[in-house]
């Protein structure tokens, strides 16, 4: 190799070295504590069991349910389409790859709220976007959808709508015979807006 390449070679090495010794990036994936505090006090991270049930029935492709309970419980029963990640290994690289997909709403649930809240907090600290907690956990889901309480006779029409939706949902999950008309989506009291295509979606494969 000729001498004329000496300068470009040195330049490349300096450029590469510059990258190594530059001070660390400040976007070190961790959310500023003040921002974290305000998002903790704000309640927008909660999705109700009705909202989630809706989206399960609609086969919403942007829905990603993450079951944080032990595997044995997950095998016994889990919400359809959910994946099982135990809360202590939520930050392992393979698990993050599995669930942290930019185009999906990631919804954590366990039996009650506490575990899901904890995991939500850890993930929020890691600046993950579109993460939610199923309010009340699986206990609440079971209570609301499967063991539905009868509605008082003098209920409002939106309550009745909700009632019939839950009826239909129970039928969907348990196959129990119910003489209720399935409400068309959008008619029921709980309106769920579904974003089908997220802007931050990953591009496809290479060659």
């Amino acid at each position: 190799m000729e001498k004329k390449y000496a300068l470009p070679s040195v330049l490349l090495v300096v450029l590469a070295l510059g990258l190594v010794i530059l001070p660390g990036k400040n976007d070190s994936r961790e959310t500023d504590p003040n921002l974290l505090l305000s998002s903790v006090t704000e309640k927008s991270r909660y999705l109700s069991v009705d909202q989630i049930t809706h989206r399960i029935i609609e086969n919403d492709p942007t829905l990603m349910l993450i079951d944080l309970r032990p595997t044995s419980q997950f095998k016994t029963f889990a919400l359809p389409g959910s994946i099982n990640i135990s809360s202590d290994s939520i930050l392992s690289a393979t698990n993050i790859e599995r669930f942290n997909q930019p185009g999906k709403d990631k919804i954590f649930y366990a039996n009650a709220d506490l575990t899901a809240e904890m995991v939500w907090m850890v993930c929020a600290r890691f600046s993950m976007k579109r993460i939610y907690v199923m309010k009340g956990g699986l206990n609440e889901w079971f209570h609301t959808i499967i063991e539905m309480k009868p509605v008082p006779v003098a209920a409002s029409s939106s309550d009745l709508d909700l009632q019939s939706f839950r009826n239909a949902a129970r039928q969907y999950f348990t196959g129990a015979g119910q003489k209720t008309v399935v409400p068309a989506s959008g008619q029921s009291g709980e309106k769920v807006t579904v974003t089908r295509k997220a802007p931050g979606e990953k591009s496809g494969g290479g060659c």
Partner: peptide, 26 residues
């Protein structure tokens, strides 16, 4: 991540290796 180093440091070694290879090839 296989070598347990940062992407920046790996690229630095890659550049050194490539330049070595270029001289060797010449």
């Amino acid at each position: 991540s296989v070598f347990g180093i940062s992407p920046e440091l790996f690229t630095f070694f890659l550049v050194l290796m490539a330049i070595g290879m270029f001289y060797g090839a010449g």
